[in-house]
Amino acid sequence: QVALSRTQVCGILREELFQGDAFHQSDTHIFIIMGASGDLAKKKIYPTIWWLFRDGLLPENTFIVGYARSRLTVADIRKQSEPFFKATPEEKLKLEDFFARNSYVAGQYDDAASYQRLNSHMNALHLGSQANRLFYLALPPTVYEAVTKNIHESCMSQIGWNRIIVEKPFGRDLQSSDRLSNHISSLFREDQIYRIDHYLGKEMVQNLMVLRFANRIFGPIWNRDNIACVILTFKEPFGTEGRGGYFDEFGIIRDVMQNHLLQMLCLVAMEKPASTNSDDVRDEKVKVLKCISEVQANNVVLGQYVGNPDGEGEATKGYLDDPTVPRGSTTATFAAVVLYVENERWDGVPFILRCGKALNERKAEVRLQFHDVAGDIFHQQCKRNELVIRVQPNEAVYTKMMTKKPGMFFNPEESELDLTYGNRYKNVKLPDAYERLILDVFCGSQMHFVRSDELREAWRIFTPLLHQIELEKPKPIPYIYGSRGPTEADELMKRVGFQYEGTYKWVNPHKL
């Protein structure tokens, strides 16, 4: 086992960053958080920038500027975001240094004079007029057009580079997404736009490419001749908990499936790229999406959770019991969808996408189930092999396979070949997804960000279904809070070829 401390991990990262040409360590950078008073800024962006600063992973002359409508001070920003920093008493001095680099400007999102004030403020910072500028839009999409237009007109660096990070949702359907994309691309070049999907920053999602293309053993079996089906799962054990009003506007397909799960599907299904260059990788992902037809209604199961009468606390409440959810809402909190990649490698292999709230566990994984062994000599005792990439929690890679049961006879039983990170790298604290992705933006690497043509294809696949749901308002199937979801989803999976045995229990190697 390799035991690495946080300091050692960050030392390795620093070495990698400083050796590259793309990370300008000594240049002045300004990180501007648009929507600095909001939840995302408070819980994710400010803490992430602090962790990067604490670990010495930001360029040395980096300033952080918050911008929002609320009249706040840096002290206010500190008060609301610091509880999420997880700072230790030993880091007190470092924390003071961090907040000394912070400033805040209040202004409207659609007022040109406010942006001119913001620009004057940035120019007044040390070497601010020639600094590289990175704008993070932690804002609702309704203000994107006004904000990007004003940034472009008043706040661009004339000497350094300018980059803009856009948070999902990128529209509600193909038409609104196209409108937003066309607007942003009329102001910024594609190499300046970073559409963030934080799932692409997760260690195991990034590991998929290495697993596939750096190991000879997987190449020959990664196709329709050997793989019976692919299941991509995202499960949350909690409901909307008072935030249903926002969720109800989008629903589970827009929230998770059309982005996170579809991105994971691309990494499983794509061909080997010409290189690890950002556009070479994204070219292959677009090719996969172009091979997927629009979702067919007979390959869809929609569910909505109801309270568990035997549960406790939140578990007793259904989705419609959330006071922020519109009365009688038919918005799905669970969806199972089957897609097919219609190309030579994957023809006929079902890709089953499942996601839901208020389920029995927290889990995100990719599961490849292989065909049955031909010419069975073990009297149907063999179960199908599976390769599982567990994204969260407890990152893991393992192969479910058959071995001989101890004893006199040739009785096979299920076991696993474990390729888990935790076994080799004991207690290594890896940077989280937002840390990686923000560092990628500083480096100018777009590999783990969504390109406009990729986004367009993703919406093309799901828009007809979303429009049909909005028009017909089908009643989702009720499922109990804390269950596996509607049984109809299991029946759909069985119908397209997935075999669920229920006889195997994964042993978490992190707890051995």
Rank of each mutant, 00 (worst) to 15 (best):
I253H: 04
R254L: 05
D255C: 03
V256A: 07
M257T: 12
H260V: 03
L261C: 07
L262P: 04
Q263P: 04
Q263D: 01
M264K: 04
L265D: 02
C266G: 08
V268H: 00
V268E: 02
V268R: 02
A269N: 02
M270S: 07
M270R: 00
A274S: 14
A274C: 15
S278I: 00
D279S: 10
D280T: 14
D280S: 11
R282Q: 00
D283Q: 03
K285N: 00
K287D: 09
V288L: 10
K290C: 07
C291M: 12
C291Y: 11
I292E: 07
S293Y: 11
S293K: 15
E294M: 10
Q296R: 14
Q296E: 12
A297S: 14
V300R: 07
Q304P: 01
Q304L: 00
Y305M: 03
Y305S: 03
V306G: 10
V306M: 14
P309T: 11
P309Q: 13
D310R: 12
D310P: 06
G311Y: 10
G311I: 09
G313A: 12
G313W: 09
E314H: 11
A315M: 14
K317S: 13
K317I: 11
D322C: 07
P323F: 05
P323K: 14
P323D: 13
T324I: 07
V325M: 06
G328C: 15
S329L: 02
T330F: 11
T333S: 09
A335P: 02
V337Y: 06
V337M: 09
V337W: 06
L339F: 08
Y340A: 09
V341H: 02
E342F: 11
E342N: 13
R345F: 09
R345S: 12
W346E: 03
V349H: 01
P350R: 02
P350V: 02
F351S: 02
I352S: 00
L353K: 01
L353S: 02
L353W: 00
R354W: 03
R354D: 04
C355Y: 01
G356D: 01
K357Q: 02
A358C: 07
L359N: 03
N360D: 15
E361Y: 04
E361R: 05
K363P: 03
K363G: 05
K363I: 06
E365R: 02
R367M: 00
Q369R: 02
Q369V: 08
Q369G: 05
D372L: 01
V373Q: 10
V373G: 06
D376T: 08
F378A: 05
H379L: 09
C382Q: 12
K383L: 13
R384Q: 08
R384G: 06
N385K: 02
N385G: 07
N385T: 01
N385H: 03
E386G: 00
L387G: 01
R390H: 12
V391F: 01
Q392I: 03
E395R: 05
E395F: 00
A396T: 10
V397H: 00
V397S: 02
Y398N: 02
T399I: 10
M401A: 12
M401N: 02
T403L: 11
T403S: 14
K404H: 00
K404Y: 02
P406S: 07
G407C: 08
F409S: 15
F409N: 13
F410W: 15
E413T: 12
E414H: 09
E414W: 10
L419P: 01
L419E: 01
T420Q: 09
T420G: 07
Y421C: 04
Y421F: 09
R424A: 05
R424P: 04
Y425K: 05
Y425I: 06
N427V: 06
N427E: 13
V428G: 15
V428N: 12
V428E: 15
K429D: 09
L430A: 09
P431H: 12
P431K: 06
D432T: 09
D432A: 10
E435N: 10
R436E: 01
L437V: 07
V441F: 06
F442V: 14
C443V: 14
G444P: 02
S445A: 14
Q446N: 03
V450R: 02
V450L: 07
V450I: 06
V450D: 03
V450Y: 02
R451C: 01
R451Q: 03
E454V: 06
A458G: 11
A458H: 05
W459V: 01
W459N: 00
T463A: 06
T463K: 00
T463M: 02
T463V: 05
P464M: 08
L465P: 05
H467Y: 11
E470F: 08
E470G: 11
E470H: 11
L471M: 12
K473E: 11
P474S: 13
K475M: 14
K475V: 12
P476H: 00
P476G: 05
I477F: 12
P478W: 08
I480C: 10
G482L: 04
S483Q: 11
S483W: 06
S483H: 07
P486Y: 02
T487D: 14
A489E: 06
L492P: 03
L492F: 10
M493C: 14
R495P: 03
R495A: 12
Y500I: 06
G502T: 09
T503M: 13
W506V: 03
